[in-house]
Each structure stands twice: as C-alpha cells, then as structure tokens.
C-alpha cells in the first residue's frame, strides 16, 4: 500500500492536535507520521500527516474537512513522504541509543 501526505492548515491553539489525532483514533485509521509547525504570525499552523492511501482515505479527508479548527485540507500526492526522512533518521538514532 502506498503512502501519501495530507496537508492541513489549522488554527493554532492547545487542543487542535487532540482534534486531529482523535479523529484518526475514532475512525481506526492509522497515522504513520506527523509534522507540525506554526505559520508566520502564529495564528495558524501547518500539519503534514503521513498516511496509508487505502480506500478510506477519501472518507478521512471529508471528516477532516468537518473539523472546526481545520481551515484547509489538501492531498499532497506529489510528496512521497521524504519530508519525513529526517524523522526516520531520528527514530533510527533513538534505537541505536537504546541498544
């Protein structure tokens, strides 16, 4: 199954991350990776979600669109998840340290 990236623009406040992750948990849809950072001005944040592109992807996107704090939802099928490469390196480094 191929991986794809969902790009979100969200209101930046404590609690918004719970809304996003809570949705994935409720719909039993696995979230493979999250990158998040505040946009200039600090009012909004950009989130990149690495997910498996199965047949429920459209349903998850439509549910994300319904969230009050989510201002924009895009599928970044031009991304292959390489943005998460450094995350992989970090995970690998953590494993080495633990070993």
């Amino acid at each position: 199954m191929s991986e794809t990236v969902i790009e979100l623009t969200v209101r930046n406040h404590p609690g918004v991350m719970s809304h996003i992750t809570g949705l994935f948990a409720r719909r039993a849809y696995n979230l493979e990776g999250i990158l998040c950072g505040a946009l200039p001005g600090g009012e909004h944040s950009r989130m990149y979600l690495l997910v498996t592109a199965d047949q429920r992807l459209g349903l998850v996107m439509r549910n994300l669109e319904k969230l009050y704090d989510v201002l924009d939802v895009r599928l970044r099928d031009d991304c292959d998840g390489s943005a998460f490469a450094h995350l992989d390196e970090l995970v690998a480094a953590s494993s080495r340290r633990a070993a």
Binding site: G15, S18, G22, R26, L67, Y68, D69
Partner: peptide, 11 residues
C-alpha cells in the same frame, strides 16, 4: 471536560 467531550461533539 475538553478532552472528554472532544469525540462526542460537533465542536
């Protein structure tokens, strides 16, 4: 309460 009502409300 925020955490508890999150999955059962529209917002």
């Amino acid at each position: 309460t925020y955490g508890l009502t999150l999955p059962i409300t529209k917002h």
